[in-house]
Design a protein around this nucleic acid. Structure first.
Length: 278
DNA sequence: ACCCAGGAAATTC
DNA sequence: GAATTTCATGGG
């Protein structure tokens, strides 16, 4: 078990693991009242919780160093980042102060792409359900009821009928096509890291069912292209309040600013209230 | 029956 | 090119 305190002091498990960037972390309240988060990435399961002002990672030291340190982006100074983001606009300052414990995770590229293909025209509880069923059916059980995300190779071998029980609806065919291209080498997600963001986005958008928004999410959450700023319905509303500021004005970390804004908007305002406030 | 959901793709102006 | 309509599924 590893005890770790982020050098920048920024980490809130609930805000980070359940703010719409990842869909597979689940919280369980233990008998002693601890809130334990369980999940998996890069083929490893993890349980973690807050305790005595620090964080406990139930994993080996090797896994912490090689996987989880980077997954939680602990190498980045979020205190400094937040200062810059907040200075750009009063609304951004409010958004950062509302949930300063959010960090943008460095997830697996393939899982991020699949997850946001599923997110299209869908709601968060159902996105979670579809992905949980997908992983339980085709992933490996790494710990009791904790599964790896199924590889592109594994899913490429599936038929639409195989995916029916996942209840992904019309998105199932998009998953299969993305899996086939990735498994077949036509699409190399790792190599997209080396390309400029706009080139990588253009390649992702050649996938059926992938438009700018899904591509931006895959780039931000899966390839950590922090200049990518996914704009969904909530962001469109918030951006109106930032005008004449645009995502491009937010610079190299626009994607991280976006995460604070998205969370702030969804947590605080009903649609009418937000529109009214603008 | 009706409405919506972290959109995409086609069509129109 | 920007604005719009259509498409598409499961769950409440």
């Amino acid at each position: 078990m590893i005890r770790f305190t982020p050098p920048d002091g920024r980490l809130d498990l609930a805000d980070t693991l359940d703010c719409g960037q990842a869909f597979r972390w689940v919280c369980e309240t233990a008998q002693d009242g601890r809130e334990i988060w369980r999940g998996a990435a890069f083929g490893k399961a993890l349980a973690l919780w807050a305790e005595d002002g620090t964080f406990c990672f139930d994993c080996s030291e090797t896994d912490f160093r090689e996987i989880w340190f980077d997954y939680f982006d602990f190498g980045t100074d979020y205190a400094r980042l937040q200062q810059e983001i907040a200075s750009a606009h009063p609304l951004l300052k409010s958004a950062v102060e509302f949930a300063p414990g959010i960090r943008v995770l460095r997830q697996e590229p393939w899982e991020a792409l699949c997850s946001f293909i599923v997110s299209q025209c869908n709601n968060i509880p159902r996105i979670k359900g579809i992905l949980a069923r997908l992983c339980a059916a085709f992933g490996d059980e790494l710990a009791p009821n904790v599964f790896s995300f199924p590889s592109a190779q594994k899913l490429a071998g599936c038929s639409p009928t195989d995916l029916e029980p996942m209840r992904a609806g019309f998105r199932a065919k998009y998953i299969l096509e993305a899996a086939k291209r990735t498994a077949g080498g036509t699409l190399d997600l790792e190599q997209l890291k080396n390309l400029p963001t706009c080139s990588a986005r253009a390649i992702l958008c050649t996938l059926p069912g992938v438009g700018n928004k899904v591509a931006d999410c895959a780039l931000l959450y899966g390839l950590h292209k922090t200049d990518c700023c996914p704009v969904d319905v909530w962001m469109k509303r918030v951006l109106a309040a930032l005008a004449p500021l645009t995502p491009e004005d937010l610079g190299e970390t626009a994607g991280i600013a976006q995460q604070y804004l998205f969370n702030y908007a969804r947590s605080n305002f009903s649609e009418e209230k937000l529109v009214k406030k603008l």
